[in-house]
Amino acid sequence: MNTTHTEKKAKPVAPKVKELIERSKSVILATVDAEGNPNSSYAPFVQVDNTFYILVSFMARHTKNLSEGRKTSIMFIEDESATKQIYARERLTIEAATSQIERDSEIWNNVVTKLKEAHGKVVDVISEMGDFILIVLQPVKGSYVNGFGSAYFVDSNLEIIEHRNDVNHQSK
């Protein structure tokens, strides 16, 4: 019997990425201020196509960073209580371009309606407050991890483009 070694290229289907996002109600935010100081936070979101929208208050540090279009990373991560291995939680990390949506524009109205559907009546109240703004988070590129040795590059359409096999774990 002739056996040849073939490299198995496990490639999760894109719906796995989409399922992780669908299981999430909020997105983790990593932003930087004008001096380069990091800030981490979170915000409830809604997804329209491959774009994410958040309604955030200027009372939060991250809002100024987001509104000024500074470097931003967002993350969706499997709930700790649902994971089988804490070191290998399923996660999607995305570099995102940010911009502010004009209040009462067509996009504002459509997205706020979707936010109300997703997160309830509280959106009626906060969307009327003057310090709340609507931010778009447009994916640029990222990575998806769903276990040890199972890390993939993701494009701006949230599609898996290749296995991240450039760095291997090494034994001591």
Results as ranks from 00 to 15, higher is better:
W108F: 15
R61E: 11
E128K: 12
A151M: 08
H163S: 02
S41A: 15
G142N: 12
P38N: 07
E128C: 01
T72M: 02
I101G: 13
E102H: 01
N109G: 04
V17T: 14
L66G: 14
G130H: 05
P44H: 10
Q85Y: 03
K121V: 15
E128M: 04
A96D: 09
A97C: 07
H62E: 01
F45H: 02
E159W: 05
G147Y: 03
R164A: 09
V17S: 12
V111H: 14
Y152G: 01
A14N: 10
H163A: 07
D166Q: 10
R70G: 03
I160W: 04
S127H: 08
V167Q: 07
K141D: 10
D131I: 05
I94Y: 03
I94K: 02
P139G: 06
A118Y: 06
H5A: 05
N39Y: 00
S156H: 03
L134V: 12
P12N: 01
S40P: 06
I160V: 09
S67H: 08
H119F: 07
G142K: 11
T51L: 11
I77L: 02
S41D: 12
K9I: 15
G147C: 08
Q47W: 05
S143G: 05
V136I: 13
Q47H: 05
I54L: 05
D49F: 02
R23S: 15
S171K: 14
N50F: 03
K18S: 15
E102K: 06
D104S: 04
L92M: 04
V17M: 08
D131M: 03
D124Q: 06
N2R: 12
F148R: 04
I160G: 01
P44C: 13
P44F: 13
R91W: 02
N157L: 13
V154S: 09
E162M: 02
Y87P: 00
N109I: 06
F132A: 09
K141M: 07
T63K: 01
L115P: 04
V136G: 10
T63W: 01
I28M: 14
H5R: 11
T63Q: 02
V125F: 10
H5P: 06
F58Y: 14
N109F: 06
Q47F: 02
V145Q: 05
A88Y: 07
L66E: 05
D124I: 11
G130M: 00
E19R: 12
I21Q: 09
D124H: 08
N165K: 10
A30L: 08
Q85P: 01
P15Q: 11
R89Q: 07
M59N: 15
G69F: 03
R61Q: 11
S73W: 00
Q170D: 10
S41Y: 04
E102T: 02
L115G: 11
L20Q: 13
V167H: 01
T31Y: 00
P139A: 04
M59F: 12
F52I: 04
I74N: 03
L20M: 11
V154L: 09
T3K: 13
E162S: 07
K121T: 14
A30K: 07
S73A: 08
N157Q: 14
Y144T: 05
E117R: 11
R89P: 15
K114E: 15
D104R: 08
Y144L: 04
N157M: 10
